[in-house]
């Protein structure tokens, strides 16, 4: 069992936080990660900024663009991860588009990830069909390669992802890109049910979850929730991180209320 898989326990809902590494700056990222861990986040996703983030909505696009302008590179992200790892034990996952990793060299990148204390990778533009090489390398390195499923995924695709994803499966809540929405997608419940029939892997849901209420609703159906764009907005609005802290605390409380719902 990986330390990511260990997060998922009976009667518990995991809280996963996404932040863009280097936004608004590298020091802040390390500080934010600590706050997230203190606030009860179970897994922290660090986004490596990419010039063409085609699965992301306006908020993360903007944060990525800003981070790149500050000169954030994959190496800088590895350094941030190493610094975060020194002070917290929370599992760390890199969320990155494929090209920066390919450019870095798959083996070299994975080796550096392990060295920096990173535990897994999420690559939104790498479906299992194209992921065989990275899958082999991450497996050897002891990193979890986490694949995604979407409401448009067919039964045969669910089978493919269920047999290759490690740690958990990332369910994209809606047909769309990342970013806050007014309501949770109506198709989520049916989608989760379809996936649940095919796998016993933990299921975590992300994209479009931006309020405490939405987090609670999504958690009631799954094993955990992933929140990203909302956190970026809170960091942008309040540099003292007080708003971020209180939001995280409220989500944690809500998830704990929902702990006995769903499968676990």
């Amino acid at each position: 069992m990986s330390i990511i898989a260990d997060v998922f326990k009976p009667n518990y809902k995991a809280m996963i936080a996404y932040i863009t590494a280097g936004y608004p700056d590298q020091k802040a990222t390390v500080k934010v990660a600590r706050k997230l861990a203190e606030g009860g986040c179970d897994i922290i996703e660090l986004g490596i900024p990419f010039s063409d983030p085609l699965a992301d909505g306006a908020t993360i696009q903007k944060a990525s663009y800003y981070a790149l302008k500050q000169g954030v590179t994959p190496d800088a992200c590895l350094e941030m991860a190493a610094k975060i790892r020194k002070s917290i034990a929370t599992p760390l996952v890199f969320m990155t588009y494929y090209n920066p990793v390919l450019n870095y060299g798959l083996k070299k990148f994975c080796k550096k990830c392990v060295g920096a204390g990173v535990n897994g990778l999420i690559v939104p533009d790498l479906p299992p069909e194209e992921g065989l090489e990275l899958e082999t390398i991450t497996r050897k390195a002891g990193l979890d390669l986490i694949y995604l499923l979407a409401p448009t995924s067919t039964e045969s695709r669910i089978n493919v992802v269920a047999s290759s994803s490690r740690g958990f499966i990332y369910l994209v809540s809606l047909t769309g890109v990342t970013g806050a929405r007014d309501t949770l997608s109506l198709e989520l419940a049916g989608f989760v049910e379809r996936v649940r029939e095919k796998t016993s892997l933990p299921l975590c849901v992300g994209f479009g979850i931006s309020t405490v209420e939405q987090a609670g609703q999504a958690a009631a159906l799954t094993d955990g929730v992933i929140i990203g764009s909302r956190l970026i907005q809170l960091i942008e609005k309040d540099a003292t991180l007080k708003s971020l802290k209180s939001f995280i605390k409220s989500v944690r409380t809500e998830l704990d209320i929902k702990k006995n719902t769903g499968r676990y």
Binding site: L54, Y98, P124, P127, E130, A150, T152, R157
Partner: peptide, 22 residues
């Protein structure tokens, strides 16, 4: 059949689009 011309091509897209491409 996987969409490759030698070592070039393929389908590097978000999962949401995979079914649409098929």
């Amino acid at each position: 059949s996987s969409g490759y011309f030698g070592k070039y091509g393929g389908k590097f897209v978000p999962e949401t689009l995979m079914t649409a491409l098929d």
